[in-house]
Design a protein around this nucleic acid. Sequence first.
DNA 1: GGCTCCTCTTGATAATTATCAAGCCTGATT
DNA 2: AATCAGGCTTGATAATTATCAAGAGGAGCC
Lengths: 232, 232
Amino acid sequence: MRTADLPQIRSLRLFESMSESNFEALMQAAYLQTFPAQLDLISEGDPADFLYVVVEGCVELYARSNGRESTMGMIRPIGTFILAAVLRDAVYLMSARTFQKSKILLIPSENVRDTFEKDEAFARAIVLELAGCYRGVVKEHKDMKLRTSVERLANRLLRYHRDQGGNGTVELPYDKRTISSMLGMTPENLSRAFNTLKPYGVEVDGSTIRFSDIEALERLAKPNPLIDERSM
Amino acid sequence: MRTADLPQIRSLRLFESMSESNFEALMQAAYLQTFPAQLDLISEGDPADFLYVVVEGCVELYARSNGRESTMGMIRPIGTFILAAVLRDAVYLMSARTFQKSKILLIPSENVRDTFEKDEAFARAIVLELAGCYRGVVKEHKDMKLRTSVERLANRLLRYHRDQGGNGTVELPYDKRTISSMLGMTPENLSRAFNTLKPYGVEVDGSTIRFSDIEALERLAKPNPLIDERSM
DNA sequence: GGCTCCTCTTGATAATTATCAAGCCTGATT
DNA sequence: AATCAGGCTTGATAATTATCAAGAGGAGCC
């Protein structure tokens, strides 16, 4: 790995408080690679050989069964994926592919587990990260079990709106096919869900969404911090 | 806490490898209590004051939003719940109530976090438990996003069947209303899903289910280890 | 027994979501 | 400019799931 990249990695929450020597040893074993878009990184069922850290770009996690496929999440800098499989030395439960061209750090699983044993600060950071991922899935699962697809879309739009500054306009961060899969619906249904939201002041123009009545949208969406807040 | 209960607790995977002194200190701070059935233990949104360990009985995790409610999981001995909230010092994302009369160990969050720092073996056990819970939710989420309700029921029945010895008969572990909520459907729909499975050799007699054509059921269910296997 | 409560089931209907088949639009290519 | 491909939308229809209402059956109780 190029030494020029080290400070950037070191500043990630996962690594910033561990000892210098342990960090160096871990990086000695790791690879930092750039992958083109739409490249398969891992496949569900494979043994967890590496922990992945997305340094730049975006990675899509997805799962398959029965010939169906569903997007399970999008990982952006700085995020890890399949940490749980690495820690348990188990197989991956999800597949992953680059969504955009991405710079990714690969750390061999064994080194992650060894360092976890040796470095208390790293162990603490790992646990916080893992617990955060866990809570993320719980929220997704609640979203799925407690809401209709229109409600899921409305709440997702409100979240993007807040993330992007809340000035009445949102730029969709992914293409609509991907968003529909994230939300657990078909692309056709996403189109119709946008139409359903029109009376609530949601105007669609390609990947730009404009809101003319946020309050009406919120009344419909009934956002719930215990589902929609990323940080909670 | 009564000293008579200590050996039982000590033998739990979470505690068995930690140091004796740290275990004693942790237990000094903990409470072991027996609660009657259907008692609310925690409510989503509350700060995580305790880590809960189900020693005997059964606890239901559930979530609410929009006036809807859904069962998120059932915790049986020996299982923990809301570990992630405790570790992150955050609020609970799920509510919990006893399903049966249950004996539950309550450990103050702060002591869990302190001991996590002090005791490396405990930290390791915590991480394995947390990673296991995480993978459990991911599987539930895949189940929900990739399968219809009839498929979810078929696979759940096959899982119970395997757990109970696979002799062609299953005793449902919960009442049907609870099972329907776990599977993300209404009680009415569960009834109909059982009817749909009749041509596949599934015969319902109260809470006893008999299978006369497991292979047909498996062809319908298409079980997937990466969703249905508890241990993976 | 008779009563009551409760869960579960069934029927009728409605709402939600998926599927299939065009068609539209846009951006890239030639 | 013409062509083409891909993503998105729309319409028609079907499948899935939920809702509302009613009834069957069982367990507990007086």
